[in-house]
Amino acid sequence: MIALGAVFRPQLPPERLRSVAELADRAGLDELWLWEDCFREGGIASAAAALAWTERVRVGVGLLPVPLRNVTLTAMEAAALHRMFPGRAVLGVGHGAQDGMGRAGARVESPMTLLREYLDALRALLRGERVTAEGRYVRLDGVALDWPPQGPVEVLAGGIGPRTLRLTGEAADGTILTAGTSPDRVRAARRLLAEGRAAAGRAEEDHRIVVYLLTARGADAVERVRADVLAEGAGGDPDAAVAGDAETVARAVRELAGAGADAVILQPTADEPDPEGFVRFAAEEVRPLVP
């Protein structure tokens, strides 16, 4: 069954998160996703709070920018979440927006090299291994977690371009695809991910694909979606966004699922006037229409 979720966008103040998270939990939404977006809410702090306020909804962070975070710290925080809230935390890592990384003094010359080294070290640490690494960016000297997760956990990575998608297939357990990804682009991404898995000898392993879907409802839905796409600029297919009622949104979700998405996360526009209502719409109106 396709998992359905919604994004709590960091344009909202952190104090709004509790009401949205609790509603997502009560309404039966499968997943609630958060962003660590410069220079707004921190992903781990927000995820920990959302998990503590809820009982069953899975909470994802998509994504943690690796230039900002030492891999050991990410492993420590991820392990703590997985031990305290087994099966409910979903963490993704990625390059981060390069402009933001530059402004924070964290931009690197080779984001691809950093992400590869980071994924290898992070997954090994979360498996409970003792890790020594002497990479270009990731350098560890016999590091092991005192409190690793008590079972296997997934590490997802964000990807857009072909090189990054092949890398996430090779080195991550799943991939997060940005809003604006059409069904055709999901199929193309699956092929690139498969190439990466084959190159790493991981062709038989499962690889979860999470896709954001820019979504608006209400009388001004079309105008708000168009404004959001224009504000974001290049990087997606405007026709991949959806504006309309529950059946229109559910149809778009089903098309993404048919293309290979394992989870579709409805992303409200930045100016969504009713975040709680958006979550209720996703859980109570769209969810019943999605297999």
Rank of each mutant, 00 (worst) to 15 (best):
M1F: 09
M1V: 10
I2V: 15
A3V: 07
A3L: 15
A3G: 14
Q11L: 12
P13N: 08
P14Y: 05
P14F: 14
E15P: 00
S19E: 15
L23K: 02
A27L: 07
A27P: 08
L29A: 07
W33R: 01
W35Q: 14
E36F: 00
D37F: 11
D37W: 12
C38P: 15
F39H: 11
A47T: 01
A48G: 14
L51D: 02
L51H: 04
L51G: 05
W53A: 05
W53M: 06
R56G: 07
V59P: 00
V59Q: 00
G60I: 00
L64Q: 06
V71L: 08
T72C: 05
A80F: 11
A80E: 11
H82T: 00
H82Y: 12
F85K: 00
F85Y: 15
V90A: 10
V93Q: 03
G96S: 09
M101R: 02
M101F: 07
A104S: 09
A104I: 01
A106I: 02
E109D: 14
S110K: 13
S110V: 01
L115K: 04
E117V: 08
E117L: 06
L119F: 12
L119I: 12
A124G: 11
E129I: 02
A133E: 10
A133T: 03
A133H: 07
V138H: 10
R139K: 15
R139N: 10
L140V: 09
W147S: 13
P149S: 07
P149G: 10
P152H: 09
P152T: 05
P152K: 08
V155C: 03
G158K: 01
G158Y: 10
G161S: 12
G161V: 05
T164C: 06
L165N: 03
G169R: 05
D173C: 07
D173R: 04
G174L: 05
T175I: 02
L177W: 10
L177R: 02
T178L: 11
T181Y: 02
S182C: 02
P183M: 08
D184M: 06
R185F: 04
R185Q: 14
A188C: 06
A189Y: 09
L193K: 03
A194Y: 05
R197M: 13
A199T: 06
A199C: 04
A200C: 06
R202M: 05
H207N: 09
V210M: 11
V210T: 12
V211L: 06
L213A: 11
G218H: 01
D220F: 00
R224N: 07
V225I: 15
R226H: 08
E232P: 00
G233D: 09
A234Q: 13
D239M: 11
A243S: 11
T248V: 14
T248N: 11
A250N: 07
R251W: 12
A257F: 00
G258L: 08
G258F: 03
A263G: 12
V264D: 02
V264P: 01
I265N: 01
P268Q: 00
D271V: 15
P273R: 03
E276T: 13
E276Q: 12
E276R: 13
G277H: 08
G277K: 04
F278N: 04
R280C: 01
R280D: 12
R287V: 04
